[in-house]
Amino acid sequence: MRIPPSITQKIAKISLTLACASAVAALVFVIGFVLVGGLKHVTWAFLTEPILDMGRAGGILPAIVGTILMVFVAIGIAAPLGIASAIYLAEYTQEGKVTQTIRFGINCLAGVPSIIFGLFGFILFVVMLGFGWSIISGGLSLAAMVLPTIIRTAEEAMRAVPRNYRDVAASLGATRWQVVTRAVLPYALPGVLTGVILGIGRSIEETAVVIFTAGSAVQMPRSLFDSARTMSVHFYILAREGISNDNAYATAAVLICTILVINITAYTMMHRLMRGRRAA
């Protein structure tokens, strides 16, 4: 017997709703699981004290500092390089063989698994260039990893700036570079920043790359050439080696909160950009 279309429509609608609800439930569950288990152990002391007894006691300050420094190095390199790449692709060239090749490279780089970046960073920065396990090695490897994200978002943001603005600026006597800096970048900025923020998020989440290139020293780093661990690495070691469940939960809670803030910021900025564009 054939089921009437109105019934299948109802069944389909309910199942699709359930599918989506379960995806969102997974998100809520993951975040809730970590926050419920961890927030109660997060104290001011936990955030500001050194790591003691391999993480059984004390806080996570060195991991926080390590995270910040490594993100700083990574973004300090990837952001200028990525934005420059995006400017080239969006403003300085026409689609052709060259851009196709560059785009292919960017897409491939975006697909390379983090563990491969780890191997690459280990051989090139740690061993060959002699930086050792250090913040600089970690930062450079992370920079390579987040580059595609920054390029893609920045290029998209620039392409979203109305074509007219460029014509107006050029007709008023702007050079190509002035067109970019005065008629394109100011209006693409929220989008460009969104890409940078997403890159920061990716760097903070990453574990595999950092373990192989920055090591996992528990001491407070004194220079960029010191080994250091990020919060993700610290959490991984605590959890995997069963050092301290409470501290693992607490670190995860700090990590999740940071990621939430970063992603929500990125999203609201992108949203504002879209709204602004619709109004214009």
Binding site: S85, Y88, T101, G105, A144, I151
Partner: peptide
Amino acid sequence: MDRFISKLLFIAACSSIAILALIALFIF
């Protein structure tokens, strides 16, 4: 000047391919 900037941007744009090539090179 503009030509110089253009060259610089092109070099930056090639960085992704360069990194990809380096990764392949070292892993291999």
